[in-house]
Design a protein around this nucleic acid. Structure first.
Lengths: 130, 130
DNA sequence: ATGGGTGCAAAGTGTTTGCAAGTAT
DNA sequence: ATACTTGCAAACACTTTGCACCCAT
């Protein structure tokens, strides 16, 4: 791996992702970054998100319309509300045994898995019942 | 739900998705559709894929760069090779109990979950060891 | 000093949409 | 006959890239 710098922009982006817990998109991160650094560009945000993901410092999750980012905590699963689109971390334990189980059955190397639940969140359920 | 027709194009698209087992993208489906119907347009493919997904006849899975489609068989999980990008169905059983478990813990309505495994497929492992 | 990184604008992808004409029901 | 659907082209949203300048190491 080639030497990588630790620029102000990269630090800022990592800081933003680490300090919000709402799984922001690249655009949301860009908007917040701009409040701290008026000159920062979208490309810098996208590039650094990619680098930080490659470094294993943040996690990228595919969702309808665009990807969402979050700091690495420990492996966990997500829930997306199909009404409002909000994303939540689930309180379920990460089941690493199924990686091994799949590896055994297929002969593949299985490094991880991602699970996204779908349904309706408490907030939207409340609105519906009115 | 408003009345929906069953056009030749829609039938063709469903037929294509049902008859290949390689999880094609919209573009791949479009290309195959064009061999049977030279006039068909991309928009028709996209529109019908959306309708077929809404009808529950096919499944859409988010993957890097673009979505992939497949006929509904039964709930199952996918594996993506991080080397070659190939997608496979896994031989693992779908665990519906975790939906209930999450619903219980959160008070959300949980309709389903999707899991994607990541790693290196047998084919690529073979190449690597040379 | 040197080569990774930045900002800008332009170019790409993948997907959606407006509209007039076509067609399943 | 009605209104859903098509094909086309243009528009979109999100992301990537080329390039000259900049700055962390």
């Amino acid at each position: 791996m080639k030497a990588q710098r630790n620029t102000k922009q990269r630090q800022l982006i990592l800081w933003i992702v680490s300090n919000r817990h709402d799984h922001p998109t690249a655009e949301q991160i860009y908007l917040e970054a701009k409040t701290k650094n008026k000159k920062i560009s979208r490309s810098t945000v996208y590039r650094n998100l990619g680098i930080l993901v490659a470094q294993g410092k943040i996690i990228q999750t595919k969702m309808p319309t665009s990807d969402h980012f979050e700091a690495v905590i420990k492996d966990h699963y997500h829930f997306v509300c199909s009404k409002c689109g909000a994303i939540f971390d689930t309180p379920l334990d990460y089941d690493s045994t199924i990686n091994d189980s799949l590896a055994e059955k297929t002969g593949f190397v299985v490094t991880k898995h991602r699970t996204v639940f779908e349904g309706i969140c408490a907030e939207c359920l409340k609105k519906e019942s009115k």
